[in-house]
Each structure stands twice: as structure tokens, then as C-alpha cells.
Computed example of a mutant assay.
Amino acid sequence: MIVVAGEALIDLVPLAPPEAGAPLPALAPRLGGGPYNTAIALGRLGEPTGFCSRISADAFGDALLAGLAAAGVDTAYVARGPEPTTLAVASVGPDGSAGYSFYAGGTADRLFELPPPLPPGTRAVAFGTCSLVLEPGASAYEALLLRESRAGRCVLLDPNVRPPLIPDADAYRERFRSWLPYVSLLKLSEEDAAWLGGVPEGPGAVVLTRGAAGLTVRTRGGVLVSVPAVPVVVADTIGAGDTVNAALLHGLAARGALSPAGMAALDPDGWREVLTLAARAAALTCSRPGAEPPYAAELG
């Protein structure tokens, strides 16, 4: 099993440009959150997946749980709370790129607590986005990351940096660097890398997403592989990076490489296959509005 740990929230996504004379576009609620999208994408790819989080008991929370169930994701490690669900208001640029404003004060996912030991069959744990920023839950997610890494499990980290949520940029960058020795696979966008001060050393492998320029992996063992993006008419980029996370984990699992040692042993051709799968999956997500990752049958 792969366990994804982090927030589940509701994206409020513009349906279309504002009507003539209207100051704002109509917004539609969509199930979201970086870790949540990653878990959904893994489930749709047929990978045994669990989600570890704290979700509101409100109607949005019920919908989020239903979405996980529909994707076949195990929710045994999901706690519920009476606080409201976090909201993220998305704005989509002319090129399909998405920006967000977050409404996260006093929401359920911020009160996440360290869970009991994960199932013995857990091979990897994925982390990222708001969950590692917003306290007090961020410290609990950090403790989980360190615990699972020390237990020998593959740890994927996607910081998916949201600067408006980070009150002290320098403190966050220092904290981020402290996680790197415990990370097996780091996924960064070019924007993440620029904000963090460059592509760091430390993890077993670093995958850099470069938008229309494709994806690149660099491993501690010296492997350097790039693949092109798959051309597509972009509806928006919501969930594309989360889909990359899922496809990377799924591709590594299919090759028996979902472990620190397995990734270290993967040759350039193996990495090229994994990155190509991730590029194809991300393109499908970009081709439709909102975070709608593909199913395994769509990838052939």
C-alpha cells in the first residue's frame, strides 16, 4: 500500500470568464488538495492506496470521503472533526496556470494528530502542500514523515509551495532543508525550485517538472534523464503536479523500485519510462477542468 498524508479541501474553480457586466466569474466547488488529489490519482491507477488526514464532518467533508471511496482509497487513517473544511479559491490564467487564495483559519485539517503505526505492508508515504505549513498539524505531519523514513519506507515530498500561506519564508526554507535527508523522492516544479533557492541536494532522486518543457530526474547515483511534455490543449493545470506524484509512485511500484534501494538501482531507461508515464498522465489532467486525474485504462 501507498499512504498519502495531507490535507483535503474544496477548490472553488471559475466556471468561465465573467459574464458581460459581472465583476466576478461563477465558482464551482471541486474536491481537492494536493495530497487528496495524489491519493485519488493513485486509486484511479489501480494502486492500493490509503489516505491519512483529518477531514471535517460538514457536507464538504462527506463529499471528500465519498470521492476517496469512489477511487478505492482506504480511509482507515482519516479522522473527522467538527471544524469547517478549508477552501481554496482558484484563479486560472490565459495559459491555464492556476493561482489560489486559501481560507484555512480554524479548519479541520489543521488539527491533524500523529496517527498510530501504519499497516506493515505500507511501502511508501507521500507528503506535501499546505499540510506541512499550517500549524499545529504541520508538526504532526513532520513527525509522521520522520517516523516513516526511519522505518525504511520510501518517502515522497512535494512541497508545492504556496507563498501566501507561509508567514516566515526563511524559517520555512530552513525547515524544508531539514527534511531532505529523510526524503527518498523529491518532486519540485520550476516555480518551487526558484522560491526555495534552487534544486537541492540530499534526496535519493529529484524530479523537476518544467511545464511545457517536460520533466527531468536527477539521482544521487548520477542518473540524469529528461522527457518531453505531451502536447495537449490545456483547460487548466489544477492537479497536474499531484497527478505526476501518483504516476511516479505507480511507475516505480510497477518496476519493483518503490524503495530507497530500488530507486537507487533503477537505470536511465527505467527512469525514462517512469517519467514518460508521468508526462502522459499530467497531460490528461491538464486537458480537463479541475483536478481530474486519469484512470489506468486511459493510459493504456
Rank of each mutant, 00 (worst) to 15 (best):
V92H: 06
L165W: 02
V206E: 06
I166G: 02
A171W: 00
S287H: 01
S91Q: 15
G34Y: 00
L208V: 15
R173H: 01
L144H: 06
T216W: 03
L185C: 02
S131Q: 01
V92E: 12
L45M: 10
I55N: 02
R110T: 15
F102G: 05
E298I: 13
W271F: 11
V233M: 05
W195K: 01
S101R: 12
R218F: 08
L87V: 11
T86I: 12
Y103E: 04
S139L: 15
T86W: 10
V13P: 04
W179L: 11
P35T: 10
A283T: 10
P294C: 09
T86C: 14
A90E: 13
V89I: 15
N160W: 02
R147E: 14
W271E: 05
P294K: 02
A296D: 04
A257F: 06
A63W: 07
L9P: 02
A246F: 12
T38I: 09
F112N: 07
E298Y: 07
A5Q: 03
V232L: 11
E292H: 06
A235L: 06
L186M: 07
G93C: 00
G93M: 10
P17L: 09
I238N: 11
R153P: 07
A79Q: 14
A235C: 05
A126N: 06
R272K: 11
G270F: 04
P14T: 13
R110Y: 01
L45S: 09
E113D: 11
D170N: 01
Y141H: 15
I40D: 08
L208F: 10
E83D: 13
L208C: 03
R44H: 13
V3R: 12
P293S: 09
A88E: 12
S53T: 05
S56V: 07
A278P: 07
L144Q: 07
V244E: 09
F176T: 00
T219C: 07
A22R: 15
T85E: 09
T86G: 14
P268M: 03
G137V: 06
K187P: 06
P29V: 10
P200T: 09
A257S: 10
R54N: 09
L156S: 02
D269T: 09
G46Q: 05
R210D: 07
P181I: 01
P119V: 11
L132N: 03
D168S: 05
A282E: 11
R177A: 15
P293T: 06
L266C: 04
P17F: 08
R162P: 10
E7F: 07
A98K: 02
A88R: 06
R175V: 00
A8F: 04
A22G: 04
P293D: 05
L165G: 00
G128R: 00
R123D: 11
G93N: 14
G96I: 11
A246D: 11
V225F: 08
S53P: 03
F112Y: 14
R272E: 15
V78I: 14
I10P: 03
P116S: 13
V274K: 02
A169T: 08
R220S: 15
L208E: 04
A261I: 08
G262T: 14
R210A: 14
G270A: 04
R44M: 10
L258H: 07
D267F: 03
P115W: 05
A5D: 06
A90W: 09
I10E: 11
S97Y: 08
T237F: 04
S184R: 00
L132H: 03
P167K: 08
F102R: 00
A212C: 02
P14I: 15
F127N: 03
